[in-house]
Design a protein around this nucleic acid. Structure first.
Lengths: 394, 394
DNA sequence: GCAATAAGTTCGAGCTAGTGACAAACTGCG
DNA sequence: CGCAGTTTGTCACTAGCTCGAACTTATTGC
């Protein structure tokens, strides 16, 4: 395992917000981050192209690249080819640096290794019987994964989970849908591995993943809705995550849509997530005569096979999802609303219902609604984004 | 009227977001804005104190101040007194520079002059019969105001109104509660006066006013709710306004709270503003037997005098306001929710009802709820904030 | 072999902030 | 009155940064 020479300073927030005054080194910090991000997004890329894209001079780009190579973040690759003139030297992120991603999900825990560009290199389930879940079991899984990839230099571990953490990302503070003995999980993983651990809500993480790995460039303005046991949302405005007081922003799932609705884990009733989450669909299915004990994934396969009761339950879930999305679209007018969760695998079937319900209000008609591009590994990539994003405090 | 030597570069957004790369002049831009804001907030203040507060060196502060004085933004004032040592030279904003503020309200139009620190120096109603409202009438009011204050150098005109403008602030695009022939209002005022005109929604403007004139320093994280004919909100997160796609963020007023509720001007029904706006209270009052044609201000005075029908209507409005605020507090977890509007004059009576309803949900209990500090001139000061804030593009 | 072209480097100019020394201005005490 | 002590504000110098022009290196096509 390589010794990481320098901690990862990659960031999308080019301008430090901690110290408000600027020193004569501020331009370098800003431009260094800019160049590093361009390399990450457009690799392989030459110094000359970086100069053209960034607007900086070739000489300046060369100096910055020299620094990044010295810090082992960037390496020179093969030379390119041009119709005329000297061949460019391609630059890439150092592929020996990697990030660990941990996705804690109510039904399963997944561990993965990714490079700095978000490519998942290896992935496996941390197979723990539900009754024996513990931080120790996760730690041993991480240790094994690291041991199997000795040649990599790990820059950190990203952990995403369906719940809120305190603002410092130290401990989960609100995760009613996750039954897990969390106590000090961040500190214990950090201590066991010696790596920096970044932990956050899965919807927040997915929103950051859109910034780090998404196609769109300029200002990001979107809401990620994670539909699972409950519903959590991550809000990105002006290219930054909205965390809110005590990190509690985005609890649209606990906005009361139906004052006479079912009770909710939060203590209220009729919250959006009691009407539109996976659990709501299963409850609806069982109430309509479906087999008790059905899981959401079985429900999906029933619907896929044509079971009318299952389809009806998911249709109703879709209507309620759309209704909540209408609220979000009206309230925040995001450019995009991205849905994450197992339900996206049935998008071809229920997407239109959701969208029609969302657009019933003229003020909510502008937002683009779509499932996460990479449904399968969206959560893992989002955990990677947490580490990349921690270059500066958010 | 002085010729403004330099356009106002004051801004709270210290870091330019347009061009992402930094030049060797970037630190100066950042620090200049920082220093100018410190002068604005803490005037009178000496160079030495500025150095202590900003973290910059005294020599650097002196150079920046020299620049600001040359640009006629700052002037030297009297010398201070200290128990020991040389007396400091106090610095202040150039009081000859001023801003015009125009508040377009459904019931009245107000025009004011403010200095750069937000102090209202003069104020008057633009008295136009409702049937004869026109941009031309406003322009002539502005011309008169400018003529009466020849010695001032005006840096711009801020216009706030209850409705949305297009993202460039060019024209109102969604103002269903305002009956006014707006056509090209921004351009026409700009052309008639030769000044820069900044126009925005009143709730957005009030949110910016909290940044510019509010007490709290660090990161601003609040929602301003303007309760008038309709309900508009301005959302401030990470110290920046959330504008959303086409400037439509913040339309919480048009989130449907009651699917069976009254029809709304937006085409939907049961929107929050059909239940909790001034108009909703008046409608409720009339439906309960109150005199038809009652205005909201008369309704308030009826309630003040003890009229039980009026009190009941306002109680119901308060409950519904609280319900919507609960939604906002749950969804965004702002540190503060600030209420603007005539209703705040009855806060002593109905505030507790609103707050109790808002806090019925455990997840919404953290936000501080308060009426705008300066109810009377809150909207005017917010229009001033628009001009100050336009130093860089938002 | 030469002209044309493009990548990447070198070096000085000009801007920035930081540093430490200095002059200026004031208080209080002997 | 004079002097020590203190604080403000300035100055000269250093070091970091980007820019721009000139330069070297590498390649293609004639």
């Amino acid at each position: 395992m390589l010794d990481p020479a320098v901690s990862l300073p990659i960031t999308r927030q080019y301008f430090p917000s901690e110290r408000q005054s600027a020193s004569n080194r501020t331009p370098r910090q800003i431009n260094r981050n800019l160049i590093l991000n361009l390399v990450r997004r457009q690799q392989p890329i030459s110094r000359a192209d970086l100069a053209r894209v960034s607007g900086l001079q070739r000489s300046t780009v060369s100096l910055i690249i020299e620094e990044l190579i010295a810090d082992r973040l960037v390496v020179e690759g093969p030379t390119g080819r041009l119709p005329r003139g000297r061949r460019p030297t391609f630059l890439q992120l150092n592929s020996q640096r990697a990030v660990l991603a941990l996705d804690i999900h109510p039904e399963q825990i997944t561990l993965a290794i990714s490079d700095l560009s978000g490519k998942i290199l290896a992935q496996k389930l941390v197979d723990i019987p539900e009754s024996q879940r513990s931080v120790a079991a996760i730690v041993s899984g991480i240790r094994k994964m690291i041991a199997e990839h000795k040649q990599k230099a790990f820059d950190g571990i990203g952990v995403c989970l369906p719940g809120r953490t305190d603002p410092a990302g130290e401990d989960p503070i609100f995760a009613p849908n996750l039954h897990f003995p969390f106590r000090d999980i961040r500190k214990r993983i950090a201590k066991a591995t010696g790596l920096r651990v970044e932990m956050d809500n899965v919807a927040n993480a997915c929103a950051l993943a859109e910034v780090w790995f998404g196609e769109s460039d300029g200002a990001h303005d979107l809401v990620v809705v994670n539909v699972a046991e409950g519903i959590g949302t991550g809000i990105l405005a002006n290219g930054r995550l909205i965390r809110g007081d005590k990190g509690m922003a985005g609890e649209f799932g606990h906005v009361q849509l139906d004052p006479d609705g079912p009770p909710c884990g939060c203590g209220s009733n009729g919250c959006w997530e009691t009407l539109a989450s996976n659990r709501a669909a299963v409850r609806q299915f069982v109430e309509s005569g479906g087999a008790a004990g059905t899981t959401f994934s079985t429900l999906l396969s029933f619907a896929h096979a044509g079971d009318p009761t299952a389809i009806a339950a998911l249709e109703r879930m879709s209507m309620n999802l759309g209704r909540g999305l209408r609220m979000i679209a009206t309230a925040l007018a995001p450019k995009e609303i991205v849905i994450v969760g197992d339900f996206t695998s049935a998008w071809y079937r229920f997407g239109p219902t959701i969208e029609a319900e969302m657009r019933r209000h003229s003020l909510s008609s502008a937002a683009v609604l779509r499932p996460a591009y990479d449904g399968g590994s969206a959560r893992l990539r989002s955990a990677v984004a947490l580490v990349l994003n921690s270059g500066t405090l958010q």
